[in-house]
Design a protein around this nucleic acid. Structure first.
Lengths: 365, 365
DNA sequence: TGTTAGGATGTTAGCGCTAACATGGATCGT
DNA sequence: ACGATCCATGTTAGCGCTAACATCCTAACA
């Protein structure tokens, strides 16, 4: 008896629901509880206009080659006429594909990361993917919060900067089961994939270069982040091996402006001045050189200056800046390609892509 | 008869559906057609663990102050224990709020836009909004495609660069009925709101400044985009009014690197060299000054150089660069604040926010 | 001419969440 | 003691789309 009444009650609900589906939208909207959105045209409205079912409209948008040419034309015309804007949120929910990739960088104000994002965005946009941007401002803990938010959005992939992550980031990304690319460093045990170069090796190369040039007293100006620290470590290793003096280091948190470089070198020059300085960023190096110009400290004769990243400014300044070139844009492109291949279902063999780096000799060191 | 069989058929379907709802998830998943996602914990799983309904879990996440403290604690514990990651896509669909704001810039490789995005992102993230990034690469038509895609995602707001837009952009945004902020320029008739400064007035100010300094022969180096063109227009107006010679202009598409500045000034110096040059971007100005240094053209005695945007490098280079300061970060922050206020339902009175600019006198002009 | 394959289109049943309304119980004033 | 009020929680009904399966129709072949 109970079961019977229950079924009857629901039968009524069911009928009501069917009716509202069959009715015109305007009429059906009367008993509706929710407020009418500003964009009321739905796939079904287009379908009704063309007298097809909504799945046909869906196919016109997603797999147009599965439709008869005439149908496709008619649907497209109706879409245009009704100014239908497909709701990708609903599509994402139904298909479990968001077509969004998240990227986490320390800050886009530093143009090296901007270049990587550029490469990534260009590659992804070719396949209709869009970029959700997160900045940590060099606060490691921010990364975890960003990753949580991104996973909540069910992004299809994640691109991270560096291989040292906040607690829990690794496991959460693993559990989510989406492709992940780490960049701007290398790791023998990436979360999933990694595209970058060895920061330690880059530091070593810079050290070897300067020592081969005959400079014995070395200094380092850089940041406090993991990658800069690795460059310093490599730099110091080489210095130690080659019997150079202890490397004095100036570490500035989250800095990449010329002014920081100027201030840092001022400090170095005040003490026993080094013969050569390796800067973790070309902007810092530029600031060092501007400061030297102001103090009439000749570069490279009294102080050799070496930069990192090989930004456009390295070629511009006088004397031109010796730097370490790192393929920032390509890093983003390769990261994007790896993601796209994984998202297309292809297996990716090379999960560790070493893009390398190159010491570019110019006039400053 | 037909109606009867129809109801019977649907009754069966209905009963099946109820059953699967009541059952344990694992059992219910057997007749399921869709593949089980990598992240199978749903709100309902959490609710079942705490023996509450799923709306209570929803409230724990969205309006925690509406729950009894004990319930809230229990729900939060279960969320933690089950590692539940809320599906924001589903939430967006149901609530018609995506908590995503889209931003369109020509390119983030130009650090002035990166600063604006930084300010915007910081303001928005305080309220849990995230940024979807689109770059036009200075291709005006790209803007329309990006806006379409963003509207499809039902972003809650849009931030655009400039006030000149691709065909259809204005009307589409209007129709979507979401808050829109234009930046980096001003307009008497914004799409919705605008935060920026008058590029024409900035060009005029630069012209007046240089003329007041006694320079009569002026040149301009800049881009082909709308905003750069407006600066040039203002610059020329003033020159004409003041009886200065015709301003020669070098326009480079989508450029902002020192190398472009160097090349441009090389061209100017080869002809009848101007006495002062106004660059639409500090990076271009820096390139101009580097080239002057290489050619031993004294700045400002033989060529005065004025930049635009007042980037960190303006203070760094020698001689320091006279420039026009424009509050890039604040522009992003204010844009974010306006959006947030509108998204909170507050009316916004000042739909046109003129942040102004300031000529900063330094050594180069 | 029946059979079958394959292309075009349709039907059903959710995806996981939240708005709106509903309910039930405690608290309060009168 | 009774309703009014309020707070905590629940029920219902979708949001707008797509996966999976179902059906229909045409053409091609035996």
């Amino acid at each position: 008896m109970l079961a019977l009444t229950w079924i009857v009650a629901n039968e009524v609900a069911l009928v009501k629901r069917r009716v509202s589906l069959v009715r015109q939208r305007a009429i059906a909207s009367v008993p509706r509880t929710r407020s009418t959105a500003a964009q009321p045209v739905r796939m079904e409205d287009v379908a009704r206009a063309v007298r097809v079912s909504s799945i046909t409209v869906s196919r016109a948008l997603n797999t147009p080659d599965k439709l008869a040419p005439a149908t496709l034309r008619a649907v497209r015309a109706a879409i245009e006429r009704l100014r239908y804007v497909p709701n990708l949120t609903a599509g994402s929910l139904a298909s479990n594909r968001s077509h969004i990739v998240a990227v986490v960088v320390p800050t886009i104000a530093n143009s090296i990361f901007a270049e990587t994002i550029n490469g990534l965005a260009q590659t992804l946009s070719q396949q209709g993917y869009q970029l959700l941007l997160g900045q940590t401002q060099y606060q490691v803990e921010e990364e975890a919060a960003l990753v949580d938010a991104f996973l909540g959005r069910r992004v299809d992939g994640v691109v991270l900067t560096g291989v040292a992550h906040a607690r829990g980031v690794r496991s959460r990304l693993h559990r989510a089961g989406i492709p992940v690319v780490e960049t701007w460093d290398l790791s023998a045990r990436p979360i999933d994939m990694v595209v970058g170069f060895s920061n330690r090796a880059a530091g070593q190369a810079a050290g070897r270069y300067l020592i081969a040039k005959g400079y014995q007293s070395l200094a380092f100006i850089g940041g406090t982040d993991d990658r800069s620290a690795k460059r310093l470590a490599g730099f110091r290793e080489v210095a130690r091996e080659c019997g150079a003096k202890e490397v004095s280091a100036v570490l500035l948190p989250a800095s990449s402006s010329p002014a920081d470089g100027s201030a840092a070198v001022a400090g170095l020059l005040a003490k026993k001045a080094p013969r050569a300085v390796f800067c973790s960023n070309d902007m810092l190096a530029a600031g060092v050189m501007f400061e030297c110009a102001r103090r009439q400290v000749d570069v490279p004769d009294r102080l050799a200056v070496m930069g990192f990243a090989d930004l456009p400014i390295a070629l511009g300044i006088e004397p031109s800046l010796t730097s370490v070139q790192v393929h920032a844009t390509e890093m983003g492109q390769r990261a994007g390609e790896l993601l796209l291949r994984r998202l297309a279902g292809d297996a990716v063999r090379e999960r560790i892509v070493d893009l390398g780096f190159a010491v570019v000799e110019r006039a400053s060191a």
